[in-house]
Design a protein around this nucleic acid. Sequence first.
DNA 1: ATGAAAGCGCTAACAC
DNA 2: GTGTTAGCGCTTTCAT
Lengths: 336, 336
Amino acid sequence: MSYTIKDVAKKANVSVATVSRILNNLPGYSEKTKEKVLQVIAEMGYQPNAIARGLINKKTKTLGVLLPAVSDTFASVVLSGIEDMAHELDYSVMVCNTDKDGKRTMKYLQALREKQVDGIVFVSEFFKEEYYNAIIAMDLPVVLVSTKSQYDVPFIKVDDKKAVFDGVTYLLERGHRSIGMIAGTKGDPIATLPRIEGYKKALQDNGISVDKRKIAFGDFGFESGITAAKELLDHNEGLTAIFCSSDEMAAGALSYLYRISIRVPDQISIIGYDNTKVAEMAIPPLTTVGQPLYEMGKNAVKMLLDRETEESQSVFMPHHIVERETVKVIEKEEAE
Amino acid sequence: MSYTIKDVAKKANVSVATVSRILNNLPGYSEKTKEKVLQVIAEMGYQPNAIARGLINKKTKTLGVLLPAVSDTFASVVLSGIEDMAHELDYSVMVCNTDKDGKRTMKYLQALREKQVDGIVFVSEFFKEEYYNAIIAMDLPVVLVSTKSQYDVPFIKVDDKKAVFDGVTYLLERGHRSIGMIAGTKGDPIATLPRIEGYKKALQDNGISVDKRKIAFGDFGFESGITAAKELLDHNEGLTAIFCSSDEMAAGALSYLYRISIRVPDQISIIGYDNTKVAEMAIPPLTTVGQPLYEMGKNAVKMLLDRETEESQSVFMPHHIVERETVKVIEKEEAE
DNA sequence: ATGAAAGCGCTAACAC
DNA sequence: GTGTTAGCGCTTTCAT
């Protein structure tokens, strides 16, 4: 057993109230008693019990974060930003791996509530009505990262449509006319539909008609990138570039292309999405539409904690194209 | 404000004790009252306050995990195993990103203690005396993952020397004689020295003399793999294979080799370590010495929780070589 | 400047 | 089978 505030009080010949005041920097004691108490505390190695404290304050200084697969590159960078900012502000973070299917989410939500976390950040997963209701019932601040919802919940994300539009336009500007797309999960209203719109708009703005066969769907993972790339190449001729909705899928495409001996970017250009570590490590290094994942994590906790006072608004974070080596410029003659 | 057990008791016309009994599945009430109480609980949407509960039990059902860089592939897989097993056993996990330098570690340790976690899993970082003392003082169970210490703290890891020995032997068996090594951080007693020993032993057992110039050091990261590979190639001629002490460094080596147009595995074979996702995604897919990272995470929490009762022992987890496409067999004639 | 005491939401004796 | 009550370790009035 560790020492309690009582032990400290006794040993320092003061009341627990005084010790508490000193611990919390409240006024109401002489410099002398403060010194004495601090010394006793040091001697005993006393540490306050945050649980007891939390019972009174109704504040636990801990945040819950729900995300699919901590082990995926995308989520882990966001988590890292969350973690850093949280600890900077003296909060701890409880991670809940919702494991893609979202089955565990309700259970986690309940655990977080019972453990009285001060707020929740919800990453990337689709925000179901069920979750919304549960969180409203708990009366807890939430912020969504890289996802949004029909409900009035603040989010922080990139403008996907615009980001893809820019990525595809980048390809267009470099002379590409026959551009395929490896999109995310079919029907996903957050990370797939708006991106396809961005893709279409870029094409249309350049007078290029959209061809359904040039769009393949994956699940954002590596393997699905391989499959989708194969599908695209099997169903199209003369593709000069592929826009991929995640770096991992782009890596899958790269891998498939390598296997069938199609050189990147000489024969086909590839552009990814996210700018995670996999883009840096790819061979060749992957040109990609970068999201400020780490900053999004950081901002999420800032927003969350602000929200405890003033109402804060959703924010769109800037994206930017990170040029590496997977996009080739097609010369005019060549393009004709 | 949410409801408390008192509210439930009042509304159900019973005492708080009865409600508590029902909540905790203790004996002492009729089926009828149980039903009634449960119904009231459902109606009110009451959820017990784990903080209050923790104050009494001295159990918070939460674990702390300290690891360097949650965003690195290695740690995040371990974390994912920890997370899964913890939630399976109804524990929550607080992540603390020690951020490589270990500067924040003491601060985290203190926060975890104040928040009364039931145990700590310490991943991969070097376990300093300071940490040991702090943890002893907190009287908390700890388990080390992928690291160990001179103190009597249970760990769970792979036998590094043996693993590297096997990896290098694998190369030897395939005809390689001139094998370089990209080791980890110079002087690291956990993840570098034993691995170098394994490398040397494999060579010596095959009558090959060890050449210092064939060993370069990195920091387990991608960039350092590039640098180290360059160093190795600049200082050695006729190298036919490189053993890398992490998949990321292997990816770096692959990247460098690609840049200078040396074909893998035709001209040089590469073997990695860890078997993380980067090995799968590498081009070509990376042959590597795999560690059961996810299982190590899972077992760590099992051990940790067992330790609350019986003393549990350290364990070495099995490693195994994952054959992919970066190692070439050198024909006898060629080798002469 | 300092202390006594109430009470946060719960569990666990102990009584009936 | 059920209720009363004393804490768990702390903060916070309210006295003094």
